[in-house]
Computed example of a mutant assay.
Amino acid sequence: MNTQDFYIGKQFNFLKSMSFAEKEVLLNHSSKLEIKKGEVIFFEDEHLKKLYCISNGACKFSLIDNKGKEHITKLLGEGDLMGRRSIITNKGALVTATAITNTILYSIDKDPVLLSLEKNNEFCQDVLKGFIDDMEDDAKKITYFQNNKKLKVRLAGLLLYLAHKFGTEKKGWINISLRRQDMADILGTTSEYVISLLTSFKNKNYLELNRGNIKINSNQKLITLMNSN
């Protein structure tokens, strides 16, 4: 594998903090995985033997409650890592990771990662910064949509969050097509209600809909709605 493949690891900046020998070890213990939409990468409570980095596509972290309902806790995109906590603590994963688009991952064996953490202080600091990035993202989600405001307000925030995290293509369409059920699971409501709200937003010209795709016509209108009570 070419070292260029790892530049996408926003939270895994080992190219600057590792020696040539350390890089070679990791590269020799890594592989490229092509994951289909809907495929599970790892399950809740699974003890992981690999660290995963998203090269292209998107994944979700989720939990299943005692009634069998899924709760999506995090959306992940290009450059995000999965499994870091589990391999460091040697404990089972807290969540299930599932591809929500066709996704390309790079997996790295656990042992050389742990050895580098033990031997290389700069690399250890990079990994710690990744945990801080996660905390900042969690705070952002509270601002955008994980709060006690009305559902239409939180949906506006979720759409802005998706556009910010995954970006938009040239014509303005958000780069991720999220199932309405997934949006409902994030917001704690039903897919029918999400569809109704999206239709209302469309009628007010806040956005455009094309099958599963969404284009925001007015960021400012959604921001104003998100900031309302």
Rank of each mutant, 00 (worst) to 15 (best):
residue 167 G to R: 02
residue 18 M to V: 06
residue 112 P to I: 07
residue 175 N to E: 09
residue 57 G to P: 04
residue 218 S to P: 08
residue 67 K to D: 13
residue 7 Y to G: 03
residue 58 A to H: 04
residue 34 E to G: 14
residue 71 H to N: 14
residue 227 N to M: 01
residue 35 I to G: 01
residue 138 D to N: 06
residue 90 N to A: 02
residue 56 N to V: 10
residue 104 I to E: 10
residue 95 V to P: 09
residue 41 I to D: 02
residue 112 P to V: 09
residue 203 N to V: 13
residue 201 F to E: 14
residue 207 L to M: 10
residue 193 Y to V: 15
residue 70 E to M: 15
residue 206 Y to L: 11
residue 54 I to M: 01
residue 117 L to C: 03
residue 106 Y to A: 00
residue 87 I to V: 00
residue 22 E to V: 04
residue 75 L to A: 12
residue 135 M to F: 11
residue 219 N to P: 03
residue 18 M to W: 07
residue 147 N to T: 06
residue 61 F to R: 08
residue 135 M to K: 09
residue 15 L to Q: 03
residue 132 I to D: 08
residue 96 T to E: 01
residue 136 E to S: 11
residue 174 I to D: 03
residue 209 L to T: 08
residue 21 A to G: 15
residue 177 S to Q: 15
residue 51 L to T: 04
residue 73 T to F: 09
residue 96 T to M: 01
residue 41 I to T: 04
residue 217 N to W: 15
residue 105 L to M: 01
residue 136 E to R: 12
residue 70 E to W: 15
residue 168 T to F: 03
residue 133 D to E: 07
residue 103 T to F: 09
residue 64 I to S: 14
residue 213 N to Q: 08
residue 104 I to W: 05
residue 172 G to N: 06
residue 109 D to A: 09
residue 36 K to V: 12
residue 193 Y to S: 13
residue 98 T to A: 13
residue 169 E to Q: 13
residue 145 F to N: 05
residue 205 N to W: 15
residue 61 F to P: 08
residue 76 L to V: 00
residue 73 T to I: 13
residue 33 L to T: 04
residue 63 L to A: 09
residue 4 Q to R: 00
residue 14 F to V: 04
residue 25 V to H: 09
residue 108 I to L: 03
residue 17 S to N: 05
residue 188 G to I: 02
residue 106 Y to W: 06
residue 123 F to D: 06
residue 185 D to S: 15
